[in-house]
Nucleic acid binder design. Sequence first.
DNA 1: GCCAATTTTGTAAGCGTTTACACTCGACGT
DNA 2: ACGTCGAGTGTAAACGCTTACAAAATTGGC
Lengths: 344, 344
Amino acid sequence: MLQAKTPRVTIQDVAALSGLSICTVSRALRDLPNVSLEARVKVGDAAAKLGYKASPAASRLAGGRTGCVAIIVPTATAWFFAQAVEAAEEMFADSGYDTVLISLRNRPSVQHQLFADLTGLAQRVDGVLLLNIALSAAELAALAGSGLAVASVGMHDVPWDNVGIDNEEAARTATEHLLGLGHWDLAMLCGSEAGEPSLVTANERLRGFEQALSAHHLTVDPDLVLPAGSSIEGGRVAMIELIENRRMPSAILAGCDETAFGALMALRDLGLSAPKNVSIIGIDDHQMSWFLGLSTISQPVADQGAFAASLLIERLHRSGLPNPPASHVLDTKLLPRKSTRRRR
Amino acid sequence: MLQAKTPRVTIQDVAALSGLSICTVSRALRDLPNVSLEARVKVGDAAAKLGYKASPAASRLAGGRTGCVAIIVPTATAWFFAQAVEAAEEMFADSGYDTVLISLRNRPSVQHQLFADLTGLAQRVDGVLLLNIALSAAELAALAGSGLAVASVGMHDVPWDNVGIDNEEAARTATEHLLGLGHWDLAMLCGSEAGEPSLVTANERLRGFEQALSAHHLTVDPDLVLPAGSSIEGGRVAMIELIENRRMPSAILAGCDETAFGALMALRDLGLSAPKNVSIIGIDDHQMSWFLGLSTISQPVADQGAFAASLLIERLHRSGLPNPPASHVLDTKLLPRKSTRRRR
DNA sequence: GCCAATTTTGTAAGCGTTTACACTCGACGT
DNA sequence: ACGTCGAGTGTAAACGCTTACAAAATTGGC
């Protein structure tokens, strides 16, 4: 049952069997130019016969390329990131790259530590995929000058390829949906809570909400805009605050679906429900939203991960820097479900 | 702004500055024996002054150790796995290992491909952490003989360290809870659907259900045991089948929380609800269960990932094989919530 | 047919570690 | 005094690949 310790077939063996030099074998195996068709065939056959696979360790040392890419996430447990990571990992795996997962665990110290040793990271991976990472100017500059290929999801004004959605538009669409149902007394549960770092995403969505109202000659009532973070609990607390200390609006836009979940829960605990007492719409189309009948704006999560990953791979392959970094905006879609209905 | 291309400090530089040989430096840096205290200090100082970090690529090639471990998951998107992965990744990162994420994406072909080239994997990582991977006998043997250090979560009869929960007991406890509330007409929504591979976990939970009933001199009604997979949709379908073509029991044990979610949804769609029309309890304590008020049996998900990771690291460090593999069973806990109540 | 230009192929020097082995040297028992 | 031992150190050979550079073979223009 125990394998006899395999003697390890090296490039030498392939060279010997094919009757060519190590150098030619190496080039043939990597599809480099200046190798005759005849040689390619010989090498291919020999390699296949011996079951030869280049030693990654040796390739790295000699060639400098690691064959690994890192995915950096704020936390791996959130629904959005898990989804995006899986899609990106698939892309990377299909291109022969190993995926190194690095979670910041929502801790600034971890991020700090990581960026303090970017050269160390650069020795372990060829490129990095950033998912919604809030970067300081210094970190951004360091990364750009690290020699690593970079791509990101959901970031802005970065000197590398980025993929994301138009958050303003998403919020605008959600708001229009509510307005279209005859609601005009709208609340928004969105934005970072006191003491937390402000979320780019949340600010943009807030702006979209305002824009939609303005377009209908309505103004936002400051009393009806409450910070709610992006957790269920944050949404629950905000909803209770809204009902008990402000007033019940006709409809609510939640900054993200988790916030909406919390709001729904608060309603239920108070013996109320949506859309009976208030219409609620979220943004994201979380896995559970369909289940809960929550109207929302869906965004292509896996697509964003996969697309950004493919852009990174592209960069990796043509290491020359011909094309400037581009920002890609993916479509979102309104998904009306049971939690919103016409005002009566 | 652009860093001048760093000339890379090598072990040579440290040797020169410390006035010792490369060999001594290498040993001192790795805390190997046979190095005088004096030498250690000199080397330490020199390395610190130069900011020296050993090149991972070179270490790998010469030493054979990669400094990477792989986490293999059926899918990275499921709540359970995302949770366990993050905990394990933290453990690995703290021990200086990079975490390579490999998702099987629920596709047998991916698993097949992976196990077809275990020697390739062994060249890229030092060890693997398996999360609930269903292994064929051949795969198990191949892995055991691959030279890789292995640990797992939620597996059985494996020749390496494993961490898991007692699924029979969990189901038994859940069932006892229902019985204790005066319910005796029990249904169970659990097990793989036709055509799917059978899930070890599900079978064990089914057994626990039967055991609890037997202990109370009750027998399971075959009509009230329905396969439901482990998805929300599976639970929904099973619940509808139960109500429409079998009969409504007094209480239901769902094989996992997702199944329970589906059941709750089916109830709602039929104008019914828990615990009003039927009590429902799940197993897992999914993130959303608290939110939905679902009674359940909680299992320590992150702990399982972290614990298994630490066991793997342990193995990695003392590569001699003194201690036999052990199986660790973690505690579960009954969490009564709103979805179950006393029969009246 | 002959020389330059252009492939194709081979030689050998890295890449930066780890590690087997040889060596030095003081301590120790006899 | 003398051989033995072991701790501390150094030399040099891997590790298995990539890649300048040189050499050989082919091509093409006159």
